[in-house]
Amino acid sequence: MPAALAEVVSDFKEMQGQDKLALLLEFAGELPPLPADLEEAAMEPVPECQSPLFLHVDAADRDNVRLYFSAPAEAPTTRGFASILAQGLDTQSADDILAVPDDFYSELGLAALISPLRLRGMSAMLARIKRHLR
């Protein structure tokens, strides 16, 4: 697991109960804005997410993969998951991203606090990123 993503997982492991949700909401507020030259219409939708989420994988440089996400402000869980992936995987190599366990999100300890459908959305985001990189 890339060091940046391992650090995010560690942050969640240090939290208990509702503090984990508070941390997820912090991540939601930290989702980077899209660059000016990238429009949501040109991005891939992730229909498995309960809220509208779009992603773009720029793997032109496989040693420095860029990830972009768009999710509405009124979808904090989805934005939080996207932000975790952005902070943990953006600028990593394709090989490092492909090596991330498909179920890494289970280590965040959110299963008791968030519905399985929402967790499935995070899994789908990672799966689509990996599909692009393969």
Rank of each mutant, 00 (worst) to 15 (best):
G17W: 03
P32K: 12
I84D: 00
A99S: 12
T78F: 02
E44R: 15
I114L: 13
L5T: 02
P52I: 01
F54V: 05
D96A: 15
L67K: 02
A94N: 07
E107F: 04
M43A: 08
A28F: 15
E74I: 04
M43C: 06
R118V: 06
G109W: 01
S70I: 01
A6N: 12
S106D: 11
L34Q: 12
Q16A: 11
A6K: 14
P116T: 08
S93T: 13
Q18A: 09
L126V: 08
A124S: 13
D103K: 11
E107K: 14
L113F: 04
A3P: 01
V65F: 05
E30S: 09
A36W: 01
G88L: 01
V8E: 07
L108Y: 10
P72I: 12
A82C: 08
A59L: 03
I114M: 00
G121E: 04
Q87R: 14
D103I: 08
K13M: 12
Y105I: 05
R120F: 04
S70V: 03
L67V: 07
A4L: 09
H132D: 12
D95H: 11
Q50L: 11
V100K: 03
A94G: 04
Q87V: 01
M125S: 03
I84G: 01
A111R: 11
L98I: 10
L5P: 03
S123E: 15
V100H: 03
D61T: 08
S115N: 10
S93G: 14
M43T: 10
R134Y: 05
L89A: 07
N64C: 11
L31Q: 06
R128F: 09
R128T: 14
Q87L: 03
A42G: 14
G29R: 04
P76W: 08
E14H: 14
S10T: 14
D90R: 13
R66S: 12
M122W: 07
L21N: 07
M15K: 15
A41K: 12
A82H: 01
E14W: 13
A124N: 11
Q92H: 04
